[in-house]
């Protein structure tokens, strides 16, 4: 018989703050509870930038001094395996976002600079940063988060930048057996899946395109295929099966060198095929992501 403690029951039934519409239109009116979103792309395509913008939108309050900041007032756990999280960039994005909103708000008082700083400080306390140095440390850390998640009902998202960080190290340490190579990531996926189900969490992870898609014989056929098919074929799952099954939405991020614009394609996995063919173009400015 399965038993659970009162705390677990509350965590399972109680609702966590919704972050729906936080970075629309890239995520449409999502992400919704229990989504597992994977951001996939080569280097410098704005994956981490999307995460930072999401964080900014999530931890800001809904309103502040009767100005509508359109934040979600929720907490985030950010797992930085790549050691690339830049808090300074996050603060810049938040500051610019607040100032841009204040400019358009007639009721705003002047000279709020100090207050903005205090507000940002307050918001940042809703963000926890974890830096892991190898995959078993990540696994143990995830296990240890269970208590945190139980006691803090305000946490609605876990972000992982990136889930592929330890891929090569695990591959080398695992020896010949594929199962041993993928052991840690499989266990990590299991823990995440447990969290998602018992806490209605959202997981957003980046995955670096670490290898080229192998050319297949029918490559010429693929060339003529539509854009979305090309992208589907562009992606090659190299992480373990457990992770692949966990992902519900995959976003392909691309960069167009000529225009410095970024392109984001959403692909819903599991559900009806090619249901969503939206392509969002955005650019990255000092204020963060600007959708074109």
């Amino acid at each position: 018989m399965q038993s659970e403690t009162g705390l677990q029951l509350l965590a399972r039934l109680g609702s966590r703050p919704s972050i729906a519409g936080v970075l629309s239109p890239i995520f449409n009116d999502g992400p919704s509870a229990k989504d597992v979103i994977e951001l996939f792309g080569t280097e410098g395509t704005g994956k981490s930038e999307i995460l930072l913008n999401l964080v900014a939108g999530i931890i800001l309050p809904k309103t502040w001094k009767s100005v509508n900041l359109n934040g979600k007032d929720a907490s985030v756990i950010f797992i930085d395996n790549d050691y690339k999280f830049s808090i300074l960039r996050l603060v810049t994005v938040m500051e610019n976002r607040i100032h841009a909103t204040l400019k358009n708000a007639p009721q705003a008082e002047e000279n709020l600079t100090n207050d903005v700083e205090l507000l940002i400080q307050k918001c940042l306390s809703k963000l926890s940063l974890i830096r892991c140095t190898n995959s078993s440390e990540l696994l143990v850390t995830l296990y240890s988060l269970e208590q945190t998640l139980l006691s803090n009902p305000n946490i609605s998202v876990i972000m992982i930048d990136s889930i592929s960080a330890f891929y090569w190290i695990d591959k080398c340490n695992g020896g010949e057996s594929l199962a041993a190579q993928e052991k840690n990531l499989t266990l990590i996926s299991e823990v995440l899946s447990k969290f998602i189900n018992s806490f209605s969490l959202i997981v957003i992870a980046t995955k670096c395109a670490l290898m080229k898609k192998r050319m297949r014989e029918d490559y010429n056929l693929e060339k003529s295929a539509s854009n979305i098919d090309r992208l589907k074929n562009d992606h090659q799952e190299f992480l373990c099966k457990a992770w692949g099954q966990l992902v519900t939405q995959r976003f392909h991020v691309e960069k167009q060198l000529a225009s410095n614009h970024f392109k984001c394609h959403c692909i819903h996995l599991g559900s009806s095929k090619n249901a969503d063919k939206t392509v969002i173009q955005f650019q990255i400015t000092d204020n963060g992501i600007q959708v074109l």
Binding site: I87, L88, K122, S125, L129, V140, T141, L145
Partner: peptide, 18 residues
């Protein structure tokens, strides 16, 4: 768990040290 996991850092402290 305590020994082998990484402790989460609160970002408002992290910001000040950064």
């Amino acid at each position: 768990l305590a020994q082998f996991s990484t402790f989460p850092v609160n970002c408002s402290d992290f910001y000040l040290t950064t």
